[in-house]
Structures are given as structure tokens and as C-alpha cells.
């Protein structure tokens, strides 16, 4: 089959890198130049990642009561995504991992994004998660999701970062994808249609 014909096939984002490298044996840098690679970055629970690569997608899986905080500087195309578990680091017995809490994770992520060249005044936020996975009238699991979401919104307001979109609350898990080319966020769930915010 002539190469020209093969080029016309439309590959999915993930397939594209693999296929391009397979067909032409390109180096990573070469395939980047022809725009064939989307870098995938995964954020674990109680972690955050930032990037200044304008063609990457940052993903975090399974936000239940946890909240995903996506920050984006549209001018410099710098993106950051945090997966926080709890609202407040100041009352916690173990706050050795700042990425676990909304307050400390946000502070640290802002710092990292500024280091990459992001302008704090230009940042935009989108948040998702904060569900209540189980109804529990009292006790440990009650309302932690809502507290996470509320605290995150309040902190973002304090920093003066506008929340352009949110998908929070209810009782189901969400997976979040943040695209660094335009700051768009796609929410995926089990058994529901994908949703862009």
C-alpha cells in the first residue's frame, strides 16, 4: 500500500503516535514536529501535575468524593490538574503530602505553574467531583465530597481565579481530561454520556 494512502486514515489521538512511529520510524522529536503526538499525563489520587506542553492531555481517574481542580493559562497554554482528597491540611494529623488537601495542593500547583511561566491573573479554573458515593446520615463518609467542592470553590475565589465550569456533587464517579491546547475539560463517567465543561 502506498504511504500516501495510509496517511489519509484518521487515527485516534492515542493510535496516532504509535502508528506514525510505526510507519515512518520517526524519532519522538520528528513526530512532535508534524503534530502527531499528544502527550498523556496521569494524575494519581492525592497528586497534581502541571505542563507547558501545548499538546498534552492531563487525566485523573475516579474522582468520587475527591475533587479535580483544573487550572489553565490560555495565553501561555500552561495547564495543571490536581486530585485532592480532603479540604483542609491545617487540621489533619498527617499533612506530609500537600497534594492531598485542597488548600495546600492549590498553593503548590499555583507555584509550579508560575514557575513554568503562567500568569496568575490570567488563570481559569474548572472543577469536577465532590460526589457523595454513599448516603451515610452521620459518621466518617458524610458530606466529605461537598466539603471538598465548597472549599475548592472558596479557595479559588480567594485567589481571584474564575471558575469557568464545574460538574460537582451527585453520587457518581468522574474521570477528568484536561486538554492543554485550549483548556477544555471532558468528564467521563460509567454509563453516562461524556460531558465537556
Amino acid at each position: 500500500m502506498p504511504k500516501k494512502h495510509r496517511l489519509k486514515r484518521v487515527f485516534g489521538a492515542e493510535e496516532r503516535q504509535h502508528q506514525t512511529e510505526l510507519l515512518y520510524n520517526l524519532t519522538y522529536a520528528q513526530s512532535r514536529r508534524i503534530g502527531a503526538v499528544t502527550v498523556k499525563i496521569t494524575v494519581e489520587i492525592a497528586d497534581f501535575k502541571v505542563t507547558k506542553d501545548s499538546d498534552s492531555v492531563i487525566t485523573t481517574l475516579n474522582l468520587g468524593s475527591c475533587v479535580g481542580i483544573a487550572l489553565y493559562d490560555p495565553n501561555r497554554k500552561i495547564a495543571g490538574l490536581a486530585h485532592i482528597m480532603l479540604p483542609d491540611s491545617t487540621n489533619a494529623l498527617d499533612n506530609s503530602n500537600p497534594a492531598k488537601f485542597a488548600d495546600s495542593a492549590l498553593a503548590l500547583m499555583l507555584q509550579e505553574m508560575t514557575k513554568l511561566g503562567a500568569n496568575k491573573a490570567a488563570l481559569q479554573a474548572k472543577i469536577a467531583g465532590g460526589a457523595q458515593m454513599f448516603f451515610s446520615p452521620a459518621g466518617p463518609a458524610s458530606r466529605i465530597g461537598q466539603r471538598n467542592a465548597d472549599t475548592t470553590s472558596r479557595l479559588l475565589r480567594l485567589y481571584g481565579i474564575p471558575i469557568l465550569g464545574q460538574d460537582v456533587g451527585l453520587n457518581y464517579a468522574r474521570t477528568v481530561e484536561l486538554y492543554s491546547k485550549d483548556g477544555s475539560v471532558v468528564i467521563k463517567t460509567a454509563g453516562r454520556a461524556d460531558k465537556a465543561i
Binding site: 468520587g64 482528597m85 454513599f134 446520615p137 457518581y172
Partner: peptide, 27 residues
């Protein structure tokens, strides 16, 4: 014991419920 509640969802999110409880005190 509380009344039971059921959830059908992704395993990671469901098991994050006990993880969050432990998150307050440990890693």
C-alpha cells in the same frame, strides 16, 4: 450500623471512600 447504601461505579472511586477516611491520619 447505619442503613446500607449501594453504589455501582468505578472501583477506584468507591475505594477512595475508605482511603479518604484514612487520608486524615495517614498516607
Amino acid at each position: 450500623q447505619s442503613v446500607p447504601d449501594m453504589s455501582i461505579d468505578m472501583a477506584g472511586a468507591i475505594l477512595s471512600v475508605p482511603a479518604i477516611e484514612f487520608g486524615k491520619i495517614a498516607e
